[in-house]
């Protein structure tokens, strides 16, 4: 954002601590043909301005890109007031809204360019902590297209955001245990890549979802909804279970709230037994 401001001072608008006005102004800026990107913490990008997004952006179908940092628990020490585990749910419930949750720096960069090309409201969610940067620098980001990281036959792990790396770590441990996991990065929660999900589950017959979000309203919820109607299969969800977060380091919080590598492994072992 700093670089953008330095290079384009006339197209950078500092609104102060006034999120509602920010969202409204962004909606207005689309009138006249601009593509506004808004930036603040995920909690203040969503919950604080839900009605503004609902009426002025989603219902009005404005070409606004809501870019939300510090999502999930891994914001860490600030605690639950600044963490959000509900944002994906809130955003995906809005008609017209596209919801994207990339997994690392390279993918976030590619997604940022892709959403500028996409016409319509977008919610782009990313986190605060330094996480491994493992996707390709020159990747092409296709909105609504799942990315298969590892083909497997025993179970499908659908992960999004930071949990994609955790799923890859889990996959390595599971391989040592003789479990062949298919790992798929669902960077676009909405629209969900239904074909990719169904194709994989028809092969593996069981599912683990992994995300830094509430179970209610998250990726797992979307996948369960699809499978229930199209291809019922056992599913375990690695997500936060109806509770607020708290202060702590990102690592401590992921461990305490059950969304770490070990939790993905445990969920896989459990769901395979349910096949």
């Amino acid at each position: 954002m700093g670089d953008f401001k330095a290079q384009n001072p006339d197209r950078f608008f500092q609104v102060g601590i006034a999120e509602a006005n920010m969202i409204g102004m962004a909606a207005g800026m689309t009138i006249g043909g601009k593509i506004p990107f808004t930036g603040t913490f995920a909690n203040f990008s969503t919950a604080r301005v839900y009605d503004q997004i609902r009426q002025s952006v989603a219902y009005s179908n404005k070409n606004v890109k809501i870019c939300a940092s510090h999502a999930g628990l891994t914001l860490g020490e600030d605690g639950a007031t600044h963490q959000t585990l509900e944002d994906i749910g809130m955003m995906k419930m809005l008609p017209n809204m596209t919801v994207i949750n990339p997994c690392d720096y390279n993918q976030t960069k590619a997604a940022t360019k892709a959403i500028a090309e996409h016409k319509g409201p977008v919610y782009l969610r990313f986190g605060r902590p330094k996480v491994p940067n493992f996707t390709a620098t020159d990747q092409k980001f296709e909105i609504g297209k799942a990315v298969v990281f590892n083909e497997g036959k025993d179970v499908t792990i659908f992960a999004t955001g930071h949990l994609v790396w955790k799923a890859i770590e889990a996959g390595q441990v599971l391989a040592e245990k003789g479990i062949d996991a298919e790992i798929i990065n669902i960077h676009t929660i909405k629209p969900l890549d239904k074909n990719a999900v169904l194709q994989s589950v028809r092969k593996t017959k069981c599912v683990v979802t992994a995300e830094e979000h509430m179970k209610n309203g998250g990726l797992g919820d979307s996948i369960a909804q699809l499978l229930t109607t199209e291809f019922p299969a056992p599913i375990e969800m690695v997500a936060v279970d109806d509770t607020f977060g708290e202060s702590g380091t990102p690592e401590q919080l992921l461990a305490k709230y059950g969304i770490d590598t070990k939790d993905v492994i445990a969920a896989v072992e459990k769901v395979i037994k349910r096949k």
């Binding site: 608008f13 509602a20 006005n21 920010m22 969202i23 409204g24 102004m25 962004a26 909606a27 207005g28 800026m29 689309t30 009138i31 006249g32 043909g33 601009k34 506004p36 503004q52 002025s56």
Partner: peptide, 9 residues
């Protein structure tokens, strides 16, 4: 707010 955005543009 919406009008301000349009005015700035």
């Amino acid at each position: 707010s919406v009008a301000l955005g349009a005015a700035q543009v």
